[in-house]
């Protein structure tokens, strides 16, 4: 059994393994970060830590519009990463076997595979690709 946190952005359904998630933050105010590139919304105060918030829909090329301030904090050995998304759903318990037969996708950058679940398709995020994108974004801006 593995646990998956499904969430939506730009009308699409995405998912992350619960083991990659540290926290879900509901409505933390986002503070202004001067000189932040498009793709970084600002920063939040997470228990005294200052963490930049990545605009995940913008990263995936979705229209930037008003959205609920839902944030997923990823746990990572390197540093924590905060992703702003549209909505977060309940945690799913998925048979490990089922999760493994994730369908591969070729055309969607940043998606590791597709998971069919009760008539819906969950796009499982590839954290490696996401990290690489964000690193690139910061380096481009930093020059």
């Amino acid at each position: 059994m593995i646990q998956i946190l499904p969430f939506t952005m730009g009308g699409g359904l995405y998912g992350l393994s619960l083991t990659d998630i540290q926290e879900v933050v509901d409505d933390a105010p986002i503070h202004y970060l001067p000189g932040a590139p498009v793709g970084i919304l600002g920063a939040i105060n997470l228990h005294g830590r200052i963490l930049p918030v990545v605009d995940l829909p913008a990263q995936f090329g979705h229209d930037v519009g008003p959205r609920a301030e839902r944030m997923i904090v990823l746990s990572n050995a390197k540093s924590a990463l905060v992703l702003a998304v549209d909505t977060v759903r309940s945690v799913l318990n998925v048979e490990a076997a089922l999760a493994e037969v994730c369908r591969p996708v070729a055309d969607q950058e940043g998606v590791a595979g597709l998971l069919d679940w009760k008539g819906e398709t969950i796009r499982m995020l590839s954290l490696e690709v996401l990290w690489e994108d964000i690193r690139h974004l910061c380096e481009m801006s930093g020059g």
Binding site: P34, A36, I40, P52, S141
Partner: peptide
């Protein structure tokens, strides 16, 4: 800021 965000320009850090 934690890496890679420490590469961003415009700020020397936050408080």
């Amino acid at each position: 800021l934690p890496p890679p965000f420490d590469r961003l320009r415009g700020t020397g850090g936050g408080a």
